[in-house]
Amino acid sequence: MSAQLDNRIRVFRAEKRMSQSDLAEAIGVSRKTISTIEVGRFVPSTIIALKIANYFDAPVEEIFSLKVSEG
């Protein structure tokens, strides 16, 4: 059984009509970091995940979730 981190950052960004660069600047990371988190290429630290959740004023599990697959 393997788990993969799924996220809804793009949805939250779209709701706020903000770019990856805007979000990156707001939480103090680079745009590349945000873009790689969004596509699941980079698993963020708990600190970054909490900063994103705080920024969108949403519980962290509403933005990040585990996608568990068999095998």
């Binding site: 590349k32 970091t33 970054i48």
Partner: peptide, 12 residues
């Protein structure tokens, strides 16, 4: 002044 988040894709 503000320390950037140490964790980033490129640092990783």
């Amino acid at each position: 002044i503000n320390q950037p988040e140490g964790d980033s894709f490129l640092t990783d």
